[in-house]
Simulated scan of single mutants.
Amino acid sequence: MLMPFSPTFPIRTDRLILRPFNHDDLEGLNAIQSLPEVARYVYWEPRDLDESAEALEIRIGQTTLTEEKQPITVAVELAETGELIGDAMLFWQSEQHRSAEVGYVFHPRHHGRGYATETVAALLELGFDGMGLHRIFGRIDARNDASARVLERVGMRREAHLVENEFVKGEWTDEVVYAILRREWRARR
């Protein structure tokens, strides 16, 4: 992989546009991040406008990879309307092992329509074809059945169930790890 790496934006799918965040996204991002059901399976609590503004500033700068342990973060909008419906990332874990992690959150109003699956598929393509990665994985709270279905639909296999491995929001939680290799991704295409 050549560094620095920066995707050619926007990334278009059948129904979505994945693009860098900008300052105009504050209201839409907060509409997502302020919801308890969105924050349920992530490390942060529902965010107020100021907290979303801080998160947005970080996301605005996450468009180029210069070293491992960095994410590329994208705003996910509906191509038809331009509405911000989600937030996704490809987090470069290791240069030596050519691995990355995917993550995503979507406004509940847009759940069940395949948008998360479409987004993750685009991030897998970016990682495997754009960056030349070997392995991409996703880590989810074991209770998050909807997210497990997303990862399974893009061809990831369940590799591990870690019992009470993290203390999150006052409780021990289980984590499930899904992954897919580049050769598996290509075989599915």
Rank of each mutant, 00 (worst) to 15 (best):
V120R: 00
R15A: 04
T13Y: 09
L65A: 07
V177I: 15
E45G: 00
S52Q: 07
T66S: 15
G132W: 00
I58D: 09
D141V: 13
L84R: 04
F167D: 02
Q62T: 06
E68C: 12
T119V: 06
Q96L: 14
M131P: 09
F91K: 12
W44P: 05
G114C: 05
F5H: 15
A100T: 12
E67V: 15
D129G: 03
R98Q: 15
E37L: 07
A39T: 04
V177W: 10
E45K: 15
N30Y: 03
Y178L: 06
E95V: 13
T119I: 05
L162N: 04
A142M: 00
L65H: 06
G138E: 00
R109I: 01
R189S: 12
R135N: 13
I58A: 10
D141F: 05
D24I: 01
G170D: 04
I85L: 10
E83H: 01
F5D: 07
L2R: 12
M131A: 12
L2S: 12
P10E: 04
P71M: 06
M1T: 09
Y43H: 09
M156T: 02
V176K: 07
D129M: 05
I180H: 02
K69F: 11
I11Q: 06
R186E: 15
E159D: 15
H134E: 10
R12Q: 15
G170H: 02
F106C: 07
G82M: 08
G103C: 09
E175F: 03
L181S: 05
R157E: 15
Q93W: 02
A79G: 09
V168N: 05
L16N: 08
D145K: 12
E125I: 00
L2Q: 12
E77K: 11
V74P: 10
V176D: 13
G170P: 09
G155V: 01
E101S: 12
L151C: 01
F128K: 08
T8H: 13
M1V: 11
R157G: 14
Q33M: 14
M3N: 04
M156V: 02
E125C: 07
N144D: 09
I140Q: 07
L78D: 08
I60N: 10
A142P: 00
E27Q: 11
T119R: 06
E83L: 06
I17M: 13
H111T: 02
N22K: 14
G61M: 02
E27C: 10
R143A: 14
L126V: 01
L181C: 13
A75N: 12
A55Q: 14
I85Q: 07
E37T: 13
E77D: 13
N165F: 01
A122T: 04
I32M: 11
E57I: 02
R143C: 03
E118H: 07
V150F: 00
Q33L: 14
P4L: 10
A100Q: 08
I11G: 10
E45P: 05
E27R: 11
P108E: 03
I60M: 14
Q96M: 14
E118L: 09
